[in-house]
Design a protein around this nucleic acid. Structure first.
Lengths: 243, 243
DNA sequence: AATATACAGACTGTCGACAGACAGCAAGTT
DNA sequence: AACTTGCTGTCTGTCGACAGTCTGTATATT
């Protein structure tokens, strides 16, 4: 598992070996680290999150570990079974239609809203788009997902409504787990198309054409939804074996 | 057992006197109680939430109190100042435009969405509407706010998208503090109008007329926003004294 | 053999205690 | 007098320990 071996193995570059922790940062370290591992599927859905084991791994007591876990639960990335352990929240395939509905609306609202705002802040969006394009060029699925998230959050930040930014970021994060399964299994024609669609959305924002931005965002969302649904249908057509 | 202080202080009428606490319910009690007090303005914005004092009040140790506070912070009802105390989050008047934008969108999306769903579940909505009408008749502002929230959440539940339900409920809760200030200061003509607007929205949902439901919800939201803005403008015209 | 019961183990929920950090006040300095 | 420096008190962040509850296994019963 992930116990004493880590403290004893200084080869690991990552999370556990940090020397002295600043007071008050314990739960944040736990939260950030586990969140990253959950979203990257390093921790599989359903995996148990044992407080005792985690406290040994992070070299701190159970209290900050518990607080970090509670923040994950608040984000719906973990689920606590009362008097039992906490587990990584399983991917909710049954809830996908509702998820897509919410995601599509956020795509539209933020893109449209950005077109109605001061367009001089597009620099941040452009930077994210460049990162996305680079990831597509490198065929790095993980980087694509990350940059795509940042691209859309940057647009939402131009719009500037914190309620939408928070919901959108949350949705995009949850989606990372699904996209992670998805992106690993298709040809690279579609990412290039996404790059072009991103460009079109940025152009509409810059021109202040809210209606066009809305339409493009809706189409972009529909495109993504359709691709994932096809992927899932393909997966269902080739069903897993039952014991 | 739990404590000696509990059995010793039976005089207090409110929340503290509960006899024996179920294991695992500590933080929930703290969260529910404080949440109610914050939203009803019993605890004023900016009030300090002292962990030690709260642990004495609730007759439990600081650990479950801390967990309850962290949930309030996650809901943006409380704010933690690092290494200092936690306070009730001040009402963010500067953020009101963004708040209204998000609230209006949720009004529209959920009402419109409900009209597209199975309309047989309107019973719950009707019940909330009856409670709202009763509160209006009794001129009970607090009950109006409560019933109004439940009315719109019930509509959102017909629509059935958990992401929207969660955001909407959260927004409506935060708004309770503003409405609490607002409802106490106007004649009772408007609540009656709200009753009628609610009726119209229910009719549109039942008839499955999504476009009409959308339009009515947007008008309803605009109405509320306008009233509150007028109230705030009146308040600003009669400014508070500065020391 | 199948079901019911008792036991053991493991992990969570809660507690009391300690150490660090910040605010406010007092004394010293320019 | 205004500003800086040191001290003191209070509250938070963290820790180790204990008790309750659940799961799974082993034993007893029909």
């Amino acid at each position: 598992m992930l116990q004493s071996g880590q403290a004893a193995s200084p080869a690991e570059p990552g999370r556990t070996g940090e020397a002295l922790r600043v007071r008050g940062s314990g739960s944040r370290v736990v939260y950030d680290t586990l969140r990253q591992e959950i979203l990257s599927l390093t921790l599989q859905p359903g995996s148990p999150l044992d407080e005792t084991a985690l406290s040994e791994r992070f070299g701190m007591s159970r209290t900050p570990v518990r607080e970090g876990l509670q923040r994950l639960v608040a984000d719906d990335l973990a689920t606590t079974l009362p008097n039992r352990n906490t587990v990584v929240t399983p991917i909710d395939f049954a809830g996908l239609p509702a998820y897509f509905e919410a995601l599509s609306l956020m795509y539209r609202v933020t893109t449209r809203g950005a077109a109605l705002r001061d367009r001089r802040d597009l620099a941040a969006v452009r930077a994210r788009q460049a990162e996305f394009a680079a990831a597509v060029g490198a065929q790095d699925a993980l980087a694509m997902i990350e940059a795509n998230r940042e691209f859309h959050v940057a647009i939402a930040e131009i719009h500037g409504n914190p309620h939408f930014i928070a919901l959108f970021a949350r949705l995009l994060d949850q989606g990372r787990r699904i996209l992670r399964l998805y992106y690993s299994s298709f040809d690279d024609r579609l990412p290039r198309q996404y790059v072009e669609e991103h460009e079109a959305m940025m152009a509409a924002i810059e021109a202040g054409e809210a209606a066009a931005a809305d339409r493009l965002a809706a189409a972009h969302a529909a495109q993504i939804v359709r691709q994932i649904q096809e992927f899932l249908a393909r997966d269902l057509a080739d069903p897993i074996e039952l014991p």
